[in-house]
Structure formats: structure tokens, C-alpha cells
Write a protein that binds this DNA or RNA. Sequence first.
DNA 1: TTTCAATAGATAAAAAAGTATCGATATGTC
DNA 2: GACATATCGATACTTTTTTATCTATTGAAA
Lengths: 227, 227
Amino acid sequence: MSKQNTPSLVVMKSTLSRLPLYYSYISRLQADGVESVSSALLAGHLNLNPVLVRKDLAQVSSVAGHPRTGFEVKQLLEDMSEYLGYNKMDEAILVGVGSMGRILLTNTKFAKFGLNIVVGFDKDPYLCGLQLDGKHILPMEKMPSLVQRMGIRIGIITVPDDQAQSVCDQMVKAGIQAIWNFAFVPLKVPEDVLVKNENLPSSLAVLAHKLAMRSPLPKELNPIIEN
Amino acid sequence: MSKQNTPSLVVMKSTLSRLPLYYSYISRLQADGVESVSSALLAGHLNLNPVLVRKDLAQVSSVAGHPRTGFEVKQLLEDMSEYLGYNKMDEAILVGVGSMGRILLTNTKFAKFGLNIVVGFDKDPYLCGLQLDGKHILPMEKMPSLVQRMGIRIGIITVPDDQAQSVCDQMVKAGIQAIWNFAFVPLKVPEDVLVKNENLPSSLAVLAHKLAMRSPLPKELNPIIEN
DNA sequence: TTTCAATAGATAAAAAAGTATCGATATGTC
DNA sequence: GACATATCGATACTTTTTTATCTATTGAAA
């Protein structure tokens, strides 16, 4: 679907979560010198329905795909990059420089996905002042002013569960508009603040339950792949 | 809904992913001495629709909720525990004792959720032989025999992306039936192997896109909370 | 040049997930 | 003891997401 066909301006959340997968795979294709890609190929590789992939691509591609060859890799990557905001970097702060916080803070891969975690905060005085791969760790007190001064909109919470709500409140007060929450507690936020929870127990529940269901009946024969 | 009303034996995946949230919250209630809980209370706390919560609970609760008071906390926790398999521990191995691997390997919280990561594997000879919080780290070569000997069915992949498929293949060959994949690559597996992907870029895409949409139009007024 | 298989795009159907509504029923209040 | 009300359970409905089907078009091979 090219833009003139009035694509639905509202993107499906599910589409959105698949796009990075497409992007990642197509990037690798490009690195291998491949110049065009079909939805069938993508679907096959990602265990998805080809029609679903086609519809997803239609949402983001600025040009129609060519019958018989598919989509041009270069153009498609540009469109997806644009669409996902991988070009214009979003800046974020992170609170809680524990083990998980460190992983996120020092993971260089986020830059590729348009996220720049500019600094980490922690209440531990022994951590404050240190740097991890060039990322400063500052005391919590400095959070509000930095957020405001830099106009930062995204906050990442990687503190222990029992401190998450308090940190969340401080973030909101400082002006943070979107929170990526790695603590396994629901956060209470004002209506205009966005929260995305990352929770492993939920994922695990799905996996474990399916595995448990498996034993009695051999069931279906298609590979079951969950994102 | 009590069991006699022929509850749909197929559980919604979405229900399954919410159950741990209920469980966690209700556990805290119990710790506070609360003895019964209503779907409205749960819903309010978790930003969900009360009807949705009620339907979820109906799937797992062995007894009907009481009008006016809701569900008995003790019984409900037992039912959920049973349902989610938090009682009977699943054993798992983990491959890739890097930063992420270490978090999972040493996180004591998984035990509460019915997962026991018994050992970590790594190809780095300097890591092998060490222990992390009592969890041994062994060389990859020992993986197949251990998996077979202990009848382990779950494998966790926390290696760099470019090694994930290879590790996956080895796991499958060893007899692993379900894989929890923390690498950001799709895994090719036989049709009878279960894969659950954990991918941060997908989550990020949803968050970032919603945030981007936010700026132009102030839009809705309800808090937007994603799991 | 003609034929043909692969592919996109569009539309329709189905499945999954979530929401609204209503009557029934305990529980506490008057 | 009657009544008001919070809550459940069931049904019906809506929305979202996925899948199926059909047509047109294109590029490559015969």
C-alpha cells in the first residue's frame, strides 16, 4: 500500500513490535548484498504469516512493493528507520544502576534503535561520580534539574521493586513523559504519562504453561514461537 | 466461573501473562493481612478493566467469587500457584554467562515463579568452574549430557546474537523442549520446540512511537500502560 | 513473444482479546 | 427483617489482530 491509499494512520501495536524484527533481519540481508526482499521470505524466516508481513510493510513503506521481486531493501530500511525513529535519537535517563541498569546503560546497541541513555542515577553514594563506558552516574538529587535542562522525556526504571513507585513519582514530577519499567510492580502514573512494563514473570508464565500443556498431548505440529 | 461450567480449556495467552501480575499483587495483600480481594480492586491497581480481571480469575479460581466481597485471597493464591506451576519447580539451564546471563542465573526471584536455573554454561574457559551464588558454570561440552541426565526441558539463551542460533541448535539436539531467547534474532527450531523471545527493541519501538505520536496531538486522557 | 509462477494489494472472514450490560446474590445497614 | 449496594457470573457486543482468498501485475524462462 503506497501512501496515497490512505493508510490507516493508527499503527497496530503488534505491527510496531514486529518492525524491529524485520528491520534487524533486512539489515543483515543488506550486509550480505541482497537488494530486494519479499514478504514471503521475511515471513518464512520469522515464522510469521506472509500476509501479516505484507500488511505490516504496507504501513511503513513509502513505495509499493514490486510483484515478483518484493521490496527494495535499501528503501525499505530507510522507511523503517524513519518510521521507528531510529534516525532521530531519543534521550533517556536511567534510575537504578544495579546489574540490570548497568546492562542497559552500557549497551551500545540501543543507539541503533534510536535510544540514547545519557546518564544513570543511583542513590548509592559509592556509585555516584563513577562512569560506566563514559556514562556518568549521578545522585538522585540531580535528576530533576537534568531532566528539565535537557528536556528529557524518557525514564528507565531499574531499581528494586519496592522503590519503583517512588522513583516513578520523582520522574513524573521532573517532567518525564514515558517510562520503561523493569521492576515487576504496576506503576501509578498521571493519565498523560506513558508506561511500558518489561516483565519476565509474565513471559515465563506463557512459556512454562505451554510446556506444561505439551506433555499430556503432543498437540499441534507447527513450531510455536512467541515474541 | 467454577470448574463445572466447562471453562474453556484453552487459556488466553494474554490472560496467562496477566496472572503473574495478579499473583504478585495479591501476595502483597496477603502479607498485609488482607483476606479477600475483588476484581475491581485488582483492576484499579493494575489499570485494567474489572470485567477482564474477572474473566481471568474465573479461568484459574477453583471456587466462585463471593458477591460483595470478592475472592478469598488464600484460596486464590493457591489456585494461581497451582495453575502457573509455581509449586512444581521447572528446571532450566542457561547458556551464556555474560551480563544478562548472570542476572538470570543469580536472581533468586525466579524460584518463586517456579523456575530453577540449575547451571550456567559458557564457552569462556576462565568462567568455567566458577560458581555464582552457588550456581556452577560449566563448559558447553557438558551441556548435552547434563540435560539428558537431569531431564531438563527449558533452555535459556543469553549469548551474543550471532551465537544464538548455534547454541539453540545444540540445545535442541540435547533434548531441550522450550527455549527462552534473550538474543535479538529469530531462532530456527524444529516444529515441536517452543520458543519465547524476549526482545527489548520491540518494546522500545512501541514506547518510542507512542511518545512520538504524543507531541503533535495531546490525544486521549487515559493513562497508557503497556505490558 | 508468450507463458507462467511469484508476488503485491485488496477485501473478506475468522479468531483473539477486550468491554458493556444485566440479573442474581450475598453482606452489611437501617 | 427489609433494603440498598457491591460484587460476581453470564451473555452479548465491539474492537483488534490475524488469516484466507482473490485479482492484477511483473519479471523471467521457454
